[in-house]
Design a protein around this nucleic acid. Structure first.
Lengths: 116, 116
DNA sequence: CTGCATCCTTTGAGATACTG
DNA sequence: CAGTATCTCAAAGGATGCAG
């Protein structure tokens, strides 16, 4: 993957695009914005992606500095994921996406109904 | 590509994710939010994507109902792209992405500086 | 000027099996 | 419990050439 730190001089849209490009990035950030979660908890909240995929997405977000990975040295292992400061600031994006998404779904429903 | 209208019952994050998944979707929407643009103008603003790719991205946004395509029956042809109503509402997302993106870039710069 | 058709390459999600 | 290692497959993006 491309160097995660080669993001300078880019417009904020391109920078953001790269970070949230992952198919599950936004949904993961949304869930972590509500609560610190263990790997397994996250997996249960998102039953549509496999372990391998979830791991990859989390690693990516971690490399970009949006997510903290806290490993508890135990047996069995326990790993908690939470948002970093800059990750928490992403909330303003999550909020607007949520608002717009709802509007869009409503809009699509109306269109659908009108076509019948 | 998946049916663009099978978006019901999904959470707004997943819906939004599908729409803006395209590598250039957000940047294109940003430019169109500032001004109605002809195909060639858009291309000059985004020199990093080819004609074919730009066409595909625009078609996708058009199918999702965010972009209007206005063809002027002329020779040579002239085509203008603008945002639909629901496309214009996407502005709240664009604004928050812009704000967060700037913060992130600033944050990354500070990190970089601290490591030297 | 706009953009389609074709081909090619790369990316990345998903499935599966295995490990400390 | 929380991963890692491979593999496969589909999709996206890009390059190029042609057309109305």
């Amino acid at each position: 993957m491309e160097d995660k730190h080669d993001l300078f001089g880019k417009c904020p849209f391109i920078t953001a695009q790269k970070i949230i490009a992952g198919k599950w990035a936004v949904v993961i950030l949304h869930n972590l914005s509500l609560k610190t979660l263990r790997f397994g908890e996250l997996q249960r909240l998102l039953p549509d992606l496999t372990q391998a995929t979830l791991t990859k997405q989390l690693r990516s977000l971690e490399e970009y500095g949006l997510v903290n990975r806290h490993v508890f040295p135990q047996v069995p292992p326990k790993v908690e994921y939470s948002l970093t400061d800059i990750g928490k600031e992403f909330r303003i994006v999550l909020d607007s996406v949520s608002i717009w998404g709802e509007k869009y779904i409503e809009h699509a429903k109306l269109l659908e109904a009108a076509q019948k």
